[in-house]
Write a protein that binds this DNA or RNA. Structure first.
Lengths: 207, 207, 207, 207
DNA sequence: AATGAATGAGACTTCATTCAT
DNA sequence: CATGAATGAAGTCTCATTCAT
């Protein structure tokens, strides 16, 4: 028991080390420019050893993306669920997104690149998973908006449209932050994002 | 003269045919899953002939993306420049984006995928071009916003933030439209986008 | 026309050269100990070139066996069909078998080894072809025996049993000849084989 | 003593279990498509344990073939030596061959496949052993024939030729029985085999 | 004695690119 | 100009064997 437990733990440790190195290299060079030999080298294993943990390069890639996506979505939802009021939830949504992005630059780079969308034509597993996760995330945000409307915190409007808008704004700031070499913390952008999303850009005079 | 002109025209015709087929195939299968043989087949030329027009697969890909990007940006700017008032410009910006996207689904698919970002490590040409174009597009939008603020059509706020926000919202709707199998025309979303961007989502009561 | 004809001819020449070298090496080392690189070297082509002619190592092997089998069976049947009387046909059968074997030692070595029977589990194409050919050869021989019985050249007996017997004797002599380093020509064994097959071994006194 | 004896017995038990499973799997899939892991799994040992009994995959294969061959030859010789008269010996030879074959279909399948003939080029041990056994079996049969001739049970003829013929006929019937899915017992073929071998196929009228 | 995770050499195959025709 | 057969480097994956536990 003790014994098999340690084994299991060691197995997970090694697996994580591989995933970690894979994340680093895939992020830097993309799926197709990364070789199994590189990942093996970086993680200190022999090539054959990688295949004890993942049955193919594609499966390794898929596993990594999957686990990161799950982590991202669960962190964000956790943060959002931690507060009550709609406006606070929206703020936490933005903040949690930015927080994850700042701490997972590489993987986010890979995620927005969406390379998983064209792995071997037969394999739509990853593609489907990414889309399903995306849809369910949109649904989750839509739920927040919906309740906000009911509580009259938000104006009456299609909640899906609100969800798409806030997610788009978030992604745009992240993207810009990536390109601008991350000079200022993304966290500084939370207030402007909320301001635009909640109140729009129109001059109040002319409104 | 006459002669060399016809030659030049023929050359461009062939080149465009290749680019057109390349766009189709690259869009469907991605850069790495597309072979030169496929493009040659589809465009009715021999493999070797492709190399008379483009010195490598990467250069061919780069040329295609480049030209499409240029086309997209110039169409959008043309539309925006065709109207006067800030609010109209913003509307045209959204409308022109959506219009281009609806008529170039494949290539847009490829663009958001951003595969060009990880071509052979040495080659940063395409990457740099994509980023430069993006930055200059943001600058262009920022200019609109800036003038809108001056004209008091828009509230006082960092114009870059406004630019990022509107672009993010646009992209989000496009992305959603792609995934939703394009059931409703993207054009229907122009008004909601403008509404959110200009007036925000907050209930006016609580505002 | 002239042009494409020469091309076709050259193609066949190269293809045959590859098959010829493949036959040599496969015969000596077996399917699994033979590498594509070796065949490429031996036939003076690059590895990739082999794949212009055969889509996989297995397909190359299969093609070679197929063509040799077809050749063998057609040569033997041709010889047998060239004579009239049953006894002559049986003699020609033995003689043609021995003749082919003497001139195709390598490939026969491979054939009796029957390695084709366990190529990748999925692929039963070669296996099925070998069996089908064998069965149809047995049927062919059975036909000869059957007519021999009708003509009263042969005694009344199941013709299939006769066919199996003569084929077994032939193979046994070939096998022995292979092992004995081919000292005496196999052709010398035609008469003894016929003698045994036709008249048996029993002493006539005690018969 | 007691102790070391039990050890020795256990060792043999394990070794036999491995050989038994190896026989099953090698027969089904051939030498090269069988992995040590499969044999380990099937026999309930760890991979490393197999190497305590056999120093390589090849040695394991060799051992299995060797022991089966020895068993086959000794069973056949035992049966043949159990009777006196030449004709009876020949009958027992056929019967014992068929009996072994019927009870060891898998291994016989493997034997006629002769995969052992092309193990790693350096290793001719198995090849040599198979040939030596074959030669000595032929010699044994030749001895029977020789005595039969002396006793005037068989006609005057090269005894080696007789030996080759009977062995070929036996193998041919076995081969056919394999392909025909074993519908009728091989034992039914003993009489026809003897009939042909002893008396030939020629019509007695024309003889 | 027994294990089985780790190894890494080596095989097959693909495909961008070249160059003789 | 145009062709497309030929090339061969490079990548993925397998599996017999080893050795620390």
């Amino acid at each position: 028991m003790e014994r098999s437990k340690r084994k299991e733990m060691e197995f997970q440790l090694r697996r994580n080390e591989i995933l970690h190195q894979a994340e680093r290299i895939f992020s830097a060079k993309g799926f197709y420019n990364t070789t199994m030999a590189e990942i093996a080298d970086a993680s200190g294993f022999a090539i054959g050893t990688l295949y004890l943990f993942f049955e193919s390069k594609e499966k390794l890639y898929t596993a990594m993306i999957n686990e990161k996506l799950d982590l991202m979505y669960s962190e964000i939802r956790g943060a959002v669920n931690g507060v009550e009021k709609t406006i606070d939830k929206i703020e936490m949504l933005v903040r949690a997104h930015f927080y994850f992005v700042e701490n997972n630059v590489d993987i986010c780079n890979l995620l927005i690149r969406g390379e998983g969308m064209t792995l071997s034509m037969g394999n739509t597993v990853l593609r489907d998973k990414i889309i399903a996760d995306y849809v369910s995330h949109i649904d989750f945000i839509e739920g927040i908006m919906h309740r906000g409307i009911e509580m009259k915190s938000l104006k009456v409007m299609e909640s899906r449209i609100m969800a798409l808008a806030i997610l788009g704004i978030i992604r745009s700031f992240f993207y810009d932050w990536m390109l601008s070499k991350k000079e200022t913390p993304l966290g500084d952008k939370v207030d402007p994002v909320l301001d635009i999303f909640l109140k729009g850009v129109k001059s109040e005079v002319t409104g």
